[in-house]
Nucleic acid binder design. Structure first.
Lengths: 189, 189
DNA sequence: GTCTATACGCTGATAGAC
DNA sequence: GTCTATCAGCGTATAGAC
């Protein structure tokens, strides 16, 4: 286990503050105080407040993109793929709860990287929808409206970060299994 | 159809801005510009920025509370009650999309009214959970984990405001029916 | 009901000493 | 790597003229 750099510490603490109050309401002075230093000292490690948000959000967005690519390339049926998507969201939500909160709540405050973020999200949703549509075509999934199903599943998965901290130590496998039961069994033929 | 007062106009425009950028990132100057007046003029109609947020969020929170009370008092089974909860969320999401966004994203910026808001939300969730637990006890609902089911349904219903504007003119009955199919049919015995 | 003028604390960020 | 000092601009809000 290698030591956390000062920059990593800033990103970790910033994510926690962003989760609680939102990007706009957190000041560089808040962040510095939380780290026990002065605001000016932060700038030896990061170039701007905006750069902090970018690093936090884009790292996670790229994790989701990479995870989705693994899933769509694998040779498995649609239900399995949906289960793997649940696993992916549970894993990221547990490993990086605060960062995920920032992604979900503060992505619109990305400035120069906003277009890039939106493209990643769009591609992710397109891949998701394609999995559902294939499943319906193959009669693995009930003939529900693909958009409503994707919206419903994604709403739950995107909200995981709100729910995980309340539950203390979460068992990822158990949580994934419960979610799969509720999100998928109902649509499984 | 009675004319909108200046104050109502402020609340409506503010809700739209809060939805897009979040409470903290919207300035009184932004709001005034959007209304075609100067920031100082806003204070003839509202006492503070905080008061705007309170009016928007608490009105909706109280709508949910009133709706839930009607549902739990009615003489119907658990599945019917869950369907009525879906209807309630769809109705409010369509009628007051922007205000609902502010409630979901900016409730933590309520200052003196935060405790009141949290109590309304807690009571709402307790009533929701009780409906699910009764349904499981009566064998109307599969023996899933009540908390996971409530979390999943509420995540979807609370995210409706994100989804509705993309869909243009929404038919509430059709949307409620699709959601009920996906959220309830899977857990129905 | 809206305006101009103004108060004044807080904001992100930089320069330069140690 | 952290500090103090500093800055220009923006934040909410008030006073008082029209």
């Amino acid at each position: 286990m290698q030591k956390e750099t000062r920059k990593e510490e800033i990103l970790r603490v910033a994510a926690r503050l962003f989760k609680n109050k939102g990007y706009s309401a957190v000041t560089m002075r808040d962040l510095a105080t939380e780290m026990g230093i002065k605001a000016a000292s932060l700038y030896n490690h990061i170039s701007s407040k905006q750069a902090i948000l970018q690093e936090i959000v884009l790292a996670i967005a790229e994790d989701f993109t990479a995870g989705m690519h693994k899933i769509i390339e694998a040779d498995s049926n649609s239900i399995k793929k949906l289960e793997q998507i649940i696993d992916l969201h549970v894993k990221i939500a547990i490993e990086n709860t605060d960062g995920l909160a920032a992604l979900n709540s503060d992505w619109m405050h990305l400035e120069s990287k906003l277009d890039y973020y939106l493209k990643l999200r769009q591609d992710y949703e397109n891949n998701y929808r394609t999995i559902i549509e294939s499943g319906i075509a193959n009669k693995e999934i009930k003939a529900v409206k693909p958009d409503v199903l994707m919206f419903s599943m994604l709403s739950t998965l995107r909200s995981l970060y709100l729910w995980i901290p309340k539950k203390g130590n979460v068992n990822p496998k158990e949580l994934s299994a419960s979610l799969a039961q509720i999100l998928i069994k109902g649509i499984n033929i």
